[in-house]
């Protein structure tokens, strides 16, 4: 429409675009992963039969990530020609924002420690999420350091990094979430056999697809190019990546088949197939139009798995009919 904000010949400035763009887009990606990390924090305790370790720290760390993540956008522009006085603070904030993220990972590990691990499909995806997200986060650190980033930026290292963080922070947790809540939504169980097959194909395929990209980035392969010189020795990793991509696609195909089959012909699900404690499991599977006949009463913490006598919520009048959550070993 002919506007000149970014047209240098008319007084505009292309860096302005990048500042505005990344001031949004960087917090955006932290926000993308926060719900997924929440899913991990939600699903993990149930499958370890142990309360979430350090609940308050986990909750506060989300605020830390959201706040810190708003201050790091310049790290997308280290090579764009921004002023030096801006690069160093952005580097510092970028490295600092790893701290609240690390809090979550330690909390999850502590939750798993000495827990009774149940390896159903949702848990398999949660475990993969944690490992993949951790690698994603760790590979972000070199990029946060300005001189290193000048070599890594716009290469396949970056592509690998953000796919690790996005798969670990959103995709794999979303898979876990779907396997976890599908019974509640549809009233049927998702096939566990196909689920495990989906998990295996997708996880293996993911690593085969993206690990070669770290190598490619370190060897200077640029991103967003449609072709590359055969003499550069980049072909084998690219070929391996392609194979990994097809394996991921196969996993997703198995997933879609499982979804359709289970939605139409799956085994009927009880209200609480995972022996979980949060409120949604008090409603039937699927819930009626208004969710609960009367508002449930919360009487204790939601993650008291394995603690004898702990109760999260009651439904119905006190002493009357209604389901009560029992403590589970």
């Amino acid at each position: 429409m002919g506007m000149r904000f970014f047209d240098p010949d008319k007084g505009g400035n292309v860096i302005l675009y990048q500042h505005l763009f990344w001031f949004y887009s960087h917090p955006a990606v932290y926000i993308f992963v926060l719900p997924g990390l929440g899913v991990i924090s939600e699903v993990l305790p149930g499958f370890c039969r142990k309360p979430l370790f350090g609940y308050r720290a986990v909750a506060l760390s989300s605020l830390g990530i959201a706040a810190g993540g708003a201050l790091v956008w310049g790290h997308h522009m280290f090579a764009a020609g921004i002023e030096e006085w801006l690069m160093v603070p952005m580097m510092v904030t970028t490295l600092l924002v790893a701290v609240p993220t690390g809090v979550k990972v330690f909390s999850w590990l502590a939750t798993m420690w000495m827990g009774k691990i149940q390896l159903e499909t949702p848990m398999l995806f949660v475990l993969t999420s944690i490992i993949v997200f951790l690698i994603g986060g760790l590979t972000g650190v070199p990029q946060g350091i300005v001189p290193v980033d000048l070599y890594l930026t716009d290469t396949y290292w970056i592509v690998a990094h953000f796919h690790f963080t996005l798969f670990g922070g959103f995709v794999f947790p979303a898979m876990a979430a779907i396997y976890f809540w599908f019974p509640k939504v549809t009233g049927r169980l998702l096939g566990e056999g196909l689920g495990k097959l989906h998990w295996a194909a997708m996880s293996a395929g993911f690593f085969i697809l993206y690990v070669p990209m770290f190598w490619l980035g370190l060897h200077g392969m640029r991103r967003r190019i449609a072709d590359y010189d055969p003499g550069l020795g980049l072909q084998l990793p690219n070929l391996v990546s392609a194979i990994g991509a097809f394996l991921v696609a196969l996993g997703m195909l198995i997933f879609f088949i499982n979804l359709v089959r289970s939605a139409t012909r799956g085994a009927p699900a009880p209200a609480n197939p995972w022996r979980s404690r949060t409120l949604e499991w008090l409603a039937s599977s699927p819930p009626p139009e208004d969710n609960f006949p009367t508002a449930p009463r919360v009487v204790g913490p939601p993650y008291g798995y394995g603690i004898p006598g702990s109760v999260h919520a009651l439904i119905g009048t006190s002493g009357g009919s209604g389901k009560m959550e029992k403590a589970d070993p």
Binding site: G2, M3, R4, F5, D7, K10, G11, G12, N13
Partner: peptide
């Protein structure tokens, strides 16, 4: 007009 220069663009926007 808005398309004359960056000032015009931001003024009218």
């Amino acid at each position: 007009r808005p398309w004359d220069h960056a000032y015009g663009s931001i003024f009218y926007t």
